[in-house]
């Protein structure tokens, strides 16, 4: 097994190559902070289960991570490693226990963990978005309407939003006959495409993607991955969780491997992924 980069530095004897990569990575990951759209520092999360004898579950144990504009970072690691927890702590669906999450928005840097609820609610979706695995179906709303409304919520006018929604749904191969059907009756794969279209229309500068293509068949998955690749190409910063290595290989500019709530490795997909078989799944 070839170890490219390890954080925190492993006890292994560092070969010159490894040391170089390590320094470069550290520089790459931490020093150029001002250009990062998202900077996570010392992020910890533990849950206290009051109804299970007050049990304490440590989920994140000090995460440091930067995501820059036009960068797609894929989080890898076995289930329970803390990947989704990290996304949810950034979006503050989970309340972080310690550390900082700084979003550099056009109005200046905003520290999200300490932001008042109302202020956070006001910038969620607009300045940074979270695309979950599932569409939280709105009972009596059609697909086109759901996607267009997401665009309007991000400042598009109605006409532009409706056009963009149509383009996106077409691109994701959602049959046009389903566009005005209530989304709650669509299949899992159809809902997931509606969800992805809504999450990526007029995209904010940072998108957190949590298994956004998990329910898609190969053809639809292809289309969805292409759409996500375009986000990066247009400068959106993406932090994503995918369960398959192929998606990471194609989309990620950097793969960050997590284990037990820590980042254990980070590097370009071709250096990291090949020895991850069996770990990331």
């Amino acid at each position: 097994m070839r170890e490219t980069t390890m954080t925190p530095s492993s006890n292994d004897v560092a070969t010159p190559t490894q040391a170089t990569v390590e320094i470069e990575m550290t520089k790459n990951q931490l020093s150029d902070e001002s250009s990062a759209v998202l900077s996570v520092r010392g992020l910890h999360k533990h849950f206290v289960l009051h109804n299970v004898d007050g049990r304490r579950v440590e989920s994140l144990n000090g995460i440091d991570l930067d995501v820059r504009a036009g960068e797609h970072i894929a989080l890898a690691g076995s289930s329970g490693a803390g990947k989704s927890t990290l996304l949810k702590c950034i979006y503050r669906t989970y309340l972080p226990s310690a550390g900082t999450v700084t979003l550099r928005s056009p109005i200046g840097p905003v520290e999200l963990t300490g932001l008042a609820d109302a202020k956070l609610a006001a910038i969620r979706g607009r300045e940074f978005g979270y695309v979950s695995q599932f569409l939280r179906a709105e009972p009596r709303r059609g697909a086109l309407d759901i996607v267009a409304r997401a665009g309007i919520a991000r400042g598009m006018d109605k006409e532009t939003a409706t056009e963009a929604a149509a383009v996106s749904l077409r691109r994701l191969h959602l049959d046009e006959s389903l566009w005005d059907v209530f989304a709650s009756v669509l299949s899992g794969g159809e809902k997931q495409r509606v969800n992805l279209a809504a999450g990526t229309i007029s995209p904010p500068q940072l998108l957190l993607l949590d298994e956004p293509v998990s329910a898609l068949d190969p053809a639809n998955r292809e289309a969805a991955l292409a759409l996500i690749a375009d986000l990066t190409a247009t400068g959106v910063a993406v932090l994503a969780v995918f369960h398959d290595l192929d998606a990471m290989d194609r989309l990620a500019s950097r793969v960050v491997v997590m284990r037990a709530g820590r980042i254990i490795e980070s590097g370009p997909p071709d250096q990291v992924l090949h020895h991850l078989e069996g770990v990331a799944r």
């Binding site: 849950f47 009051h50 109804n51 949810k88 503050r92 669906t93 309340l95 609820d117 956070l120 609610a121």
Partner: peptide, 19 residues
């Protein structure tokens, strides 16, 4: 307890809210 609605339901802090 007071908070963002999704946070309150996904990561409730108070024992009562957790119940």
């Amino acid at each position: 307890e007071q908070g963002l609605t999704d946070q309150l339901f996904e990561d409730p802090q108070a024992p009562y809210t957790q119940r």
